[in-house]
Structure formats: structure tokens, C-alpha cells
Design a protein around this nucleic acid. Sequence first.
DNA 1: TAGATTGTTAATCGATTAACAATC
DNA 2: TAGATTGTTAATCGATTAACAATC
Lengths: 210, 210
Amino acid sequence: MQKNDGISMSVIRRLPRYYRFLCELKERRIERVSSTKLAEIMNTTASQVRQDLNCFGGFGQQGYGYSVSQLKEEIQKILGLNNNYKAILIGAGNFGSAIAKHLDFDKLGFELIGCFDSDPAKKGESLGDLTVQSDGDIEAFCSQNRIDAAFLCIPRSSAERTVARLYGLGIRSYWNFSHYDIASRYPDAVVENVHLNDNLMTLCYRMTNN
Amino acid sequence: MQKNDGISMSVIRRLPRYYRFLCELKERRIERVSSTKLAEIMNTTASQVRQDLNCFGGFGQQGYGYSVSQLKEEIQKILGLNNNYKAILIGAGNFGSAIAKHLDFDKLGFELIGCFDSDPAKKGESLGDLTVQSDGDIEAFCSQNRIDAAFLCIPRSSAERTVARLYGLGIRSYWNFSHYDIASRYPDAVVENVHLNDNLMTLCYRMTNN
DNA sequence: TAGATTGTTAATCGATTAACAATC
DNA sequence: TAGATTGTTAATCGATTAACAATC
């Protein structure tokens, strides 16, 4: 499994969950939490919680536990959610528009500043507070704005060509809903894949064999 | 990590990828494939490929490799994609409707036969070849149709109550886009979570620390 | 037969869990 | 101080990789 920093992906993938639960605890006005309690919520062991957190620093206090709001802040910082990475959305179909409307990018470290589709009929449509631009305008837009990431909501067939363009424009981070394997073609890119098909097949497997 | 069958989740989560790549190979009219070649595509080792496949049976032939179309069929059967699990969609918002329109459920082992929303304004809207029904009609619908799974595209806040109802109606399999932790409340349910927020935060982490 | 490649056992590696001394 | 709970090292467990005999 790939690494970043020397922190294993297993740990990294747990961070958003810690963060999520800490936000909930905070909303419920709970001030402190022990590794045992966190482990219970996370459905893991206290040992793992302490090991995970100690990858990044000693945020706890012996005999007391962790301060919910302090730990939340720390993880927020570790995740980089205070950034305001500029992102563009490629593909304003069902999915693309659902994502654009539905997610609170601001709280997730991003700002969606542009949206493109190859279908001329879509041009000018509004999507939240964005307007769908023509696919052909990507180059111009990227030369005027520093883009940090692209969200790809396009089919596999067009993904290859599109990523080649985006990579050429300097974009190195991708949230990829297509089945095109970006990482193997561009090893230095940071890619998070969302494979809904794979996910649903896994559900099917588990329903069938259990 | 949870098990099914005694097959580890690590192996199970790789199955859809094998399947995907085998479909591609078949489309490209490639008849045979070795573990080495498959490993290359999957970005893993030949050892792992052989270990994985041998969890389910000896599908290869020494000195030859694997028959693409035979292996594809086998994995299709293992995943249970030939089933026609009846599913209902709860929540016809941006996401729910994108999913309903976008995925080819038939090829993924499912058939979407009903769609519900709590917003009265949505009632009667058509969604692909389905018509959005009122949330209150779930009970009646489920008593007339054997439902195998529910796809939850609703916010966390309404998920708890909704799952309680669905569970009460006998539904034990969930594709969950909400942040409600079904598995911890209903340990015997089969749950696949899609946490887009977590996923995007992971991308943010990796962009920040690398 | 010789070459290729599997199936399978053994070795390694990494992640999780347990234990406990440090300390608030 | 006594009790609680961390940080951290050591032990265990599971997953991945290597090796090789079996065999097509």
C-alpha cells in the first residue's frame, strides 16, 4: 500500500473518521474523550487509537484523555482542511452536478471554482453558483487560475484524453469517479478513486456469500 | 476487519477489480492471461493474484495461465452478479437520482424497483423508468414486493429512523451514502458505506502532506 | 521433452493488539 | 497520594511476497 510521509494508508484512511466523530462529540458539547471511548465509537481498540494519534504527536494527557476540541483542531490541521485548494469539476452530468450541489467543499479543504462539460447543450447551465463552461475553455481557465485539483465525473472513455490535458496543464491531484487508472499512467499524481460499481459489487458478494 | 466465508475483506475488495480488468481483456479479444500479466494490470504481484484466485478454486492451468472468459465467468458467479436482488432507493435528491440514472444495476447484481422520498413535492416525479413514491408508502410497497436491499441517499439525520423502519420490514442489506453507522446498530446487517466526504478529506490530506 | 506457469507451502513484512511504565 | 489514562515498546496476528515442486 502506498505511503505518504511514512504514515501508512491504513492510518490515513481512519483520520476522516476520527475527525467526523470528534465533530459529533463537540456538537454534543462533550469536552474530553479517552482512547477507550473513541475506540468504542470507531469500532476498534484503544491501542489502535493511541497508536494512530501518536503518529502525529502526543495530543493526550495521562490520566485525563484527549480534549475533544483540541484534538478536532489538530486532525483538521493534519488533514489540511484549512486549505482552500482550487478545484474544477469535469463533467456536469448526473453525478457531477449532484456532487457540485451536494458537498460542502469549504469544510473539506476545497473550493470549486469552475465546471466544464463537453456537451455544448450544457454550456451556460448553472450549477449552484457556477456556470457550466465548454470543455474547450479548460486551457484558458487554467491559465488564468491556479488549479490544484480536478474532480472527474466523466466516463472512462473520455478520461484518458482529459487527464492528459489536465496533467499537461500542471494538475497533479485528482478525485476520480471514472474507471480510468490515472495512478498507473501518472505515478506522481495524487489520486483518490471512487468506484461505485466496485462498491456495489462488493455488497452483492457479501449478500450472496454470507 | 470483518470476514465473510473466511475470505478476508482485502481479497473480497479486489474481486471487482479483477472482474473489471477481465471484462476489458475480453473486450480486447484477449483469450488467455497469466498471473504475471494480471498482476501488472492490477498493480500487484503474481503471487497475490494466484493466492487470491485460489481462495475460490483452481481456475488456471499450469504452463498456460488463465482463460480470460472462463475466469471472468467464475468471478461473476463468485460476486453473485447473476442475481437480481430487488432494491429500493431511499432519497431522490441530487445523489439519489444521479445514482438511479447512472448505474447499470442489472450488471451489478441488482434491480432497482422502487424509489421513495419524504419531500411531497417530489412525489410523482419520474426517475429513469421509476416514479418517485411517498416515503409513507414504503411499508405497503415492501409488503407487496420482496426487497433485498436498500440504497440510502438521505442525510444522516433521517437515516436512523429510516433504517429502523427498513430493518423492521426485514431489509438486511444496505448501500449507505449517509454517515449513519448502520453496522454498529444492526450487527447482522450487510452494509457497504460510501463516504464521499471521507474520501475527499483523504485527497486533501495527501495533497497537503506529500 | 523442454518451457511456462500454476497451486501451495514457507518466509517476510506490516498492521493490530497487548502490556506496562510514565505521568497527569 | 491514588486513580486514570496516556505514550510507547513488545507480542501477536494477518496479509503479502517469495520460492519451488507439480503439471500442463
